[in-house]
Design a protein around this nucleic acid. Structure first.
Lengths: 108, 108
DNA sequence: TTGTTCCGTAAGCCATGTCTTACGGTAAGT
DNA sequence: ACTTACCGTAAGACATGGCTTACGGAACAA
């Protein structure tokens, strides 16, 4: 259930905004906080949650701390999602919408 | 930002358990509730949230109501995740871990 | 050493969301 | 008509989680 932490991390809108700020390259905490309507400690807490979830990685650069997206966490989430992406599920959906299985045996 | 609702829907553990119960085929509300440690109204509310998020679809079958996984919501989430799955991001991660860009210009 | 900049953490307030019980409504059977 | 089975919604109690301010530590410069 590692994807539980990952999904919870991406559920919050502000935290997702922090995550998306890192899409075009690594950034420090202050750089991200300046582009968001929340305080810097809030961004720091969000980055910690993203790190625990395996979505970002950090590195010390002097007194600054640079964060970047870690594709591993994204990959695990993708892999979990594929369980619900099969052809059988599409068939199930049609079965529910039509009210009958695709192949009918009798007709009342 | 349609994926916001989708991510929020999958963030809750109980709701995710409801979603996973539908992985091996459509089920009614009572059938799902019997296999979970929560009440039936709770399951009903979770299924409503999953429906709004585009993750499940429902159909009336007599007095029962059958729910099934809707691959569309899963697909949208996958598509959003692909933004953070590129090669450039992997390069960014290495840049952060190594402390230097792959190609160094000078050496102090 | 002093000062500055950058950051993480703790404590508290407050909003959000989940669960329960209670109720009403629809469909099928007797 | 009456009963049973199944479901959705409302209201309230309760826990969870995000945000802020305040504080302390680490690195670089003068």
């Amino acid at each position: 259930m590692a994807y539980g932490t990952t999904l919870a991390a991406l559920a919050d809108p502000t935290r997702r905004a922090v995550f998306e700020r890192l899409r075009d390259g690594p950034k420090s905490v202050g750089e991200v906080a300046r582009t968001l309507p929340v305080s810097r400690p809030a961004v720091s807490q969000h980055l910690k949650a993203l790190k625990v979830a395996g979505l970002v990685s950090d590195r010390a650069e002097g007194t600054r701390r640079v964060y970047a997206i870690d594709p591993q966490g994204v990959g695990e989430l993708r892999h979990w999602l594929d369980q619900f992406w099969g052809d059988a599920l599409t068939a199930f959906k049609h079965e529910v919408e039509l009210g009958e299985p695709p192949r009918r045996r009798k007709k009342p």
